[in-house]
Simulated scan of single mutants.
Amino acid sequence: MSDHEGHGGAAPGTDDDLSLPKATVAKMIAELLPNDVACAKETRDLVIECCVEFIHLISSEANEICEQESKKTIAPEHIIAALKRLGFETFTEEVEDVLKDHKQQVKEREKKVGKLEASGLTEEELLRQQEELFAASRAKFQSTQQ
């Protein structure tokens, strides 16, 4: 099996371009390790390679599940099914919790947008009102400073 089989038909050479932000991974590793333990650069790079390979594995399996269901978009349910099919059942509860939190955040964001639209004001009118409130606040602050 070549390095590129099972990766959704990616063109040879494209896997080398895939990575994770090194600084972010280094920070995560540092947070997980005791204060008196350091992580070598080579170790961090190996962790990144393992994470990228894991992502390839899960996404390839999720893609197969998606195709079997005649779907064109990989949904969260496909990822969860891929985790289970590949023997990572222990991850599914945490993934489902994160998905639930994400959906809640999206709902809250949509409510905020709904309130904006429900105001019946244009963006220019809202900006004008905001500037007026800022000006009134500055004036009140300046009067208390004197």
Rank of each mutant, 00 (worst) to 15 (best):
A75D: 11
A81S: 12
E94H: 12
I58A: 00
V106F: 03
S19G: 09
L57V: 05
L20C: 02
S2C: 09
G8M: 02
Q68R: 12
H7E: 10
F134V: 15
G114W: 02
A118P: 03
E132Y: 07
I58Y: 00
K71Q: 07
S60W: 03
G13C: 04
D101Q: 12
G87I: 00
E61Y: 00
F54H: 06
G13D: 02
F141V: 11
T92S: 05
E124K: 13
L20M: 05
K22Q: 11
F88C: 05
G120N: 03
Q130A: 14
H4S: 11
I79Y: 03
D16I: 13
S137Q: 12
G8E: 01
T122S: 13
D97L: 13
A26N: 06
E93R: 09
P21A: 05
E110Q: 07
D3W: 12
K22R: 14
P76C: 06
L18G: 07
R85A: 10
A136P: 06
H56W: 08
I80Y: 03
V52I: 04
T122Y: 07
L46I: 10
I65Y: 03
K27R: 14
L32Y: 08
K100E: 15
K115F: 14
Q129N: 10
P12D: 11
G8R: 03
E61T: 01
C50Q: 12
R44L: 11
R138K: 14
E69R: 14
N35E: 01
L32A: 14
T122I: 04
A30M: 03
K84T: 13
T90R: 13
G6W: 02
E132I: 08
P12K: 09
A10K: 08
H4I: 14
K103H: 09
K107F: 13
S2R: 10
C39T: 00
E123V: 15
T14G: 08
E69F: 12
E110N: 05
D97A: 15
D15G: 14
V52S: 05
I74C: 07
L32F: 12
Q68F: 06
Q142P: 05
D97V: 09
T73E: 04
S119Y: 04
T43A: 13
E5V: 12
R44D: 10
S143N: 10
R138F: 13
L133M: 15
F91Y: 14
L127V: 09
L127N: 08
E132W: 04
P12R: 07
L33F: 03
V37S: 02
A118G: 06
I65E: 02
R138H: 08
S70M: 13
L133R: 13
I74H: 05
Q104E: 13
D101K: 15
E123Q: 15
E96P: 05
R44P: 04
N63A: 06
A38F: 09
G87N: 00
E96V: 05
L127Q: 15
E123M: 13
Q130H: 14
E124I: 06
A10Y: 10
I80L: 06
F54A: 05
D45S: 09
F54I: 02
E61A: 03
K71C: 05
A62H: 00
K112G: 13
G87K: 01
S59F: 08
T43S: 09
E77H: 08
N63F: 04
V98S: 10
L126P: 01
G120Y: 07
P12N: 07
G87S: 00
E117V: 12
A118S: 10
F88Q: 01
K27Q: 08
H56D: 08
I55Q: 02
A82V: 00
G87E: 00
F91Q: 11
E131C: 04
